[in-house]
Each structure stands twice: as structure tokens, then as C-alpha cells.
Amino acid sequence: MKNIVVIGAGTMGNGIAHTFAQSGFQVSLVDVKQENLDRAIKTITTNLDRIIAKGNLTEEEKTSTLGNITTFTDLKDAAPKADLIVEAATENLDLKLRIFGQMDELSPAHCILATNTSSISITQIAAATKRPEKVIGMHFMNPVPIMKLVEIIKGYSTSKETFDEIFELSKKLGKVPTEVNDYPGFVANRILMPMINEAIETLYNGVAGVEEIDTVMKLGMAHPMGPLQLADFIGLDVCLAILNVMYEGFKNPKYAPNPLLVNMVMAGKKGVKSGEGFYDYSESKKAEKVSKMFLK
């Protein structure tokens, strides 16, 4: 396995491309907009510079990593030589089904089709292809170049050969792969998202403020980041999408997203990516509570 295609140049996509490229793989990064690709390469370059500053990478290795990445705006130009395609598009089922149909049509028969979905059924995604035995979940954690965990999720038809190959490949990336079965939210988000949702519920009910809730979880539970700050970092729209998938999948009210989260996303308050969420990132990343407007 030498040629990797990554679909989506956003936060997760550029991180996945960075990780594969730094491990010596030839990476084709695909996005529908050239501006997204340009931004992704800039982000990867900045992140490589940070690694160099810490003494964990040389300038030569940075040059080699960037040289391993080629960008495309059309999947049909990248897919024909792919050994593995990793889809890292928005957490939207219809979009993923369309992309997987294209991946299946355009890639060679031996190519494994993986998704970085954080909650959607691998079995359902695989049904959009004619090679369900070669469809698998590779759920990387953000930031991808730093976080060690990769959830490896088998669909109903995923073959043992496909699973074993992706499991070993993840080790070659310096990751710790963990086998997970195909249920909504898998393990990471099935546990994490209800906690984030409960933190939002706590704020919504006026039990404590944003910084106070995060302080309790950081100092009392030894979490490196409070749940509301983490939600901002993940993206409130992503949190909402995952909770909706879990709510639909389990039909359990404990997964129903809090109204405050729904309102914030509708208002465009998506966290770090929009410059504003539970904290204000627009002015020197000064922590300011912005959710009070929804509590009136």
C-alpha cells in the first residue's frame, strides 16, 4: 500500500494527509475547492514548522513530507492509482453515500475504501458500494498528527483481510489502533458526546457558567480540556451532527441534543472554526461567554 487518497481538506482531512505523508506515503488530497486545498497545505506547513521548533523534525523531513502531497479538485484524477481512499468529508450521511459511490466507481478493484466518520454506520456506508468487504472505518482523533488513537470499525461485511491490513497500516503511522464494533457513535463519541451534551445542559439550566463548568472538569476530573472548550474545538456543528446520528440510531432521549446547542449552531456559533462558540476566539482568543443571549 503506497498511494493514499484523502477526500476533504478540512481539519481532519489535512491532518490525515499530513500524517500519511510524514510516514512516507504518496498522498493525493482531494477537495472540490482549490482554496480549501491551498489552506490545507498552509496548515500542514505551519504544523510541520511547529514540530521542527520542538526538535522532532528536520527541514529535510518537512520538505519530503510536503513533497509527498499532491492536490486535486476532481476525484477521478486521483482515484485510479489509489491503494486506499480515506473519506474525511462533513458528517452527513447523504454526502458520504454519494462520495462512496464515486470512490467505488473510480478506484481500482484492490483499493480499500475507508471513512473517518465519527458516528455513522459503516455497514450503511458500505451498502453504497459494490465492495462492502473492502469498506472500513478509520476514525482518527483531532489533531491527527498528535493524537495516537484510531478507532478501526468493521462493517457487517468488512473482511478479516481488510481489517488486518488497516490495523497494521495504522501501526505504521505510529498510531494505536483499537477494534470497535459498528454502533452509532462507536466508543469515543458514544461516551464523549453525552458528556458534552450534559455540560451544555448544565449551562442551559443555570447551574454554573462556561468557565466554571470547564474548571470543575479540568481540576476535579483531571481532563486536559473542559467539555465546553472541547466542544468548541471539535466544532459545535459536528457535535450536533453526531448527537443527531446517535439519537436516531438508539431512539433514546439521553442522546437528544440540548436546545442551546441547536440554537448556537443555527446562529452560526460553531466554535473555533467560526471564531465564536462557548468562548470568543475573535479577539486574541479571549475567553468570553457568548451563550447568554440564548438563555434570556
Rank of each mutant, 00 (worst) to 15 (best):
T63W: 03
A88F: 04
K62C: 04
E91N: 00
E91I: 02
A88W: 00
L66M: 07
E61C: 11
A79R: 07
I69M: 05
D74C: 10
D94A: 14
L84R: 02
D77F: 01
D83A: 03
A79E: 11
V86K: 05
A89W: 09
L84P: 02
T90P: 06
N92C: 09
A89V: 15
K81S: 15
T63E: 09
E61D: 13
F100D: 06
N68K: 12
T63G: 06
D94S: 13
T71M: 06
R98C: 01
T63N: 15
T90D: 05
V86P: 05
S64L: 14
A79N: 00
L66E: 12
I99A: 04
T70P: 08
A82W: 02
T90M: 09
D77P: 00
D104C: 08
T65P: 08
I69K: 08
I69G: 08
K81T: 15
S64Q: 15
V86F: 00
Q102E: 14
L84T: 05
R98D: 13
G101D: 08
R98T: 07
I99M: 02
L66K: 13
D77G: 03
A79W: 03
L84E: 02
K76H: 11
A89S: 14
D83W: 00
A82P: 03
F72D: 07
I99E: 07
E61S: 13
G67T: 08
L66F: 07
L75V: 04
A78Q: 01
A82D: 03
L97S: 03
D77S: 11
A79P: 05
N68F: 00
P80K: 12
A82H: 01
E87D: 12
L95N: 02
R98I: 08
N92V: 11
M103V: 13
L66G: 12
N92F: 10
